[in-house]
Simulated assay, not measured.
Amino acid sequence: MNSDISKGIYGQGWAFPPTFCIEGKETTENGVEVKSGVTLCSGVNDVQQSLIILLSTQYYERIMRMEYGNDLMQHMFDNIGEGLFEKIRKSLTVSILNNEPRVVVDVITITSDRVTPSKLSIIINYHLFDNNVLHRLYGMLDIKENMTGVWR
Rank of each mutant, 00 (worst) to 15 (best):
S121W: 10
I110H: 01
P117Y: 00
L97M: 02
S95Q: 00
E82L: 09
K119S: 13
N125Q: 15
F85I: 02
V105G: 01
E100V: 05
V103A: 13
F85M: 09
E82F: 07
N99V: 10
N98T: 10
E100K: 09
K90T: 13
I108H: 08
T111E: 05
S91T: 05
I123F: 05
D113Q: 08
D113N: 15
L97I: 05
V104T: 10
I96S: 12
T116N: 06
G83H: 13
L97W: 13
T93C: 14
R102D: 05
S118P: 12
E100Y: 01
V103G: 03
S112D: 14
V105E: 06
F85H: 02
N125S: 09
I124R: 08
R114P: 04
G83F: 09
D106N: 11
R114W: 11
P101H: 09
V105I: 15
S95F: 00
I110F: 04
V105R: 10
V94F: 15
S121D: 03
V115G: 10
R89I: 10
I122T: 02
L84N: 00
L84R: 00
K87L: 04
L84T: 00
F85N: 15
L97H: 15
T109L: 04
K90Q: 11
D113T: 07
R114H: 04
I122Q: 11
N99C: 15
V115L: 11
N99M: 13
V104F: 12
N125M: 02
I96F: 06
V115I: 08
E100H: 01
I88P: 00
K87F: 12
T116W: 06
R89W: 08
T109H: 12
R89L: 15
D113P: 06
K119V: 01
N98S: 07
S91H: 14
P101I: 03
T116E: 14
S121R: 05
